Computed example of a mutant assay.
Amino acid sequence: MRRAERLFRILNEMRTRDVIRGSELAERMEVSLSTIYRDIAHLQASGLPIEGEAGIGYLLRPGFELPNMTFTHDQVDALAIGLAFVERTGDPMLATAAQEARAKIQAGLPNPEDRKLADAPFYSLQIQNSAPPTVSLVREAIRQRLIVEIDYRDGEGQSSERSVRPLVLWNLTDGWMFSAWCELRRDFRTFRFDRIEKLAVTGTVFEDDDTKGLRAFLATEPCEGD
């Protein structure tokens, strides 16, 4: 990693933290602690409002803003691939959001005409299945932590009414699915959108629960589908 890129990343890390220790920065940047001390000293000498000292931690005073976004060529390629994927998920709202995000990022790049995200040679060949309208409802429910009620038909054709805590969406070759904590089964379950006969987002907010949240779900074995 070039020093200029490392200095930028150090500033970006400090913007997201109240206080950060030099050892944490060294681990994240994959350099020695002495290198971090030299980088911090260089930034302070350049007039940046960084307070703190070695062995205690560093703080970037509020009010400092970074200049236009700077990305490496690899980072621009990663953004191009990710945006291309999102545009082809079949969710119109996400596709529009990806196009808007591309425009914002492009405008923030230094010398934007030198490297256009729209011209990056990466494309995503996505499944033909368009996202059903209920995907956007579940996305909003995940964001606001709202209970979702569904009438669901399982793989054997049996129907049941479920009250679930939606946690994560999946866009797979088989189509769209979402995983949730199911109150009926008292366990994590994954539901296929093409088997949902009815879906309604309630106004009930579910509280944070370490045993029923996304982290707990990801720590389990692949959960059983319904």
Rank of each mutant, 00 (worst) to 15 (best):
E51I: 10
A101P: 04
G213F: 05
T96I: 01
E30G: 09
P110H: 00
Y58S: 07
L7H: 08
P92F: 04
I36G: 07
S159H: 07
A141E: 03
I150N: 00
S160T: 15
M29D: 03
N171Q: 15
Q128N: 12
I10D: 10
I147M: 11
E87G: 06
F193Y: 02
S34D: 14
Y123M: 11
Q158A: 07
Q99P: 00
A98K: 05
S46A: 15
V135K: 07
D154W: 13
R88K: 14
H73E: 09
L43G: 02
S32G: 00
P110I: 08
R21T: 14
E5T: 14
E65S: 15
I196V: 14
D208E: 14
M1D: 11
R9L: 13
A78T: 10
R139H: 11
E53A: 13
E100V: 02
V148D: 06
E87L: 03
F206Y: 15
G203V: 08
G90T: 08
H73P: 06
R38Y: 12
T89C: 08
L59M: 03
L60C: 00
D119I: 10
P132M: 10
I81R: 00
M69T: 07
R165N: 06
E5N: 14
E13Y: 04
L43V: 09
S159I: 15
P92T: 01
A95E: 04
L137E: 10
V135R: 05
P62V: 00
E30L: 11
C182Y: 01
G225T: 14
D208A: 12
R215M: 09
V31Q: 04
L94M: 14
A101G: 10
E27W: 05
H73Y: 05
A120H: 09
E100K: 12
S130T: 12
R3T: 04
D210T: 11
A216C: 09
A216F: 07
V138I: 10
K104A: 14
E27G: 03
G213M: 02
M69S: 00
F178V: 06
L11V: 13
V135Y: 09
H42G: 02
G63T: 11
R192A: 14
D151E: 15
I81K: 04
V148R: 01
V19N: 09
T16C: 06
K116Y: 05
T202E: 10
S163F: 07
D194W: 05
L79M: 04
D77I: 11
P62M: 06
W176H: 12
F206A: 03
A84T: 01
M69C: 00
A120R: 04
G155P: 05
D119R: 04
R2A: 12
I50Y: 03
P222L: 01
N171C: 14
E149R: 15
T220V: 01
S136W: 01
A98W: 06
L79Y: 03
A200G: 01
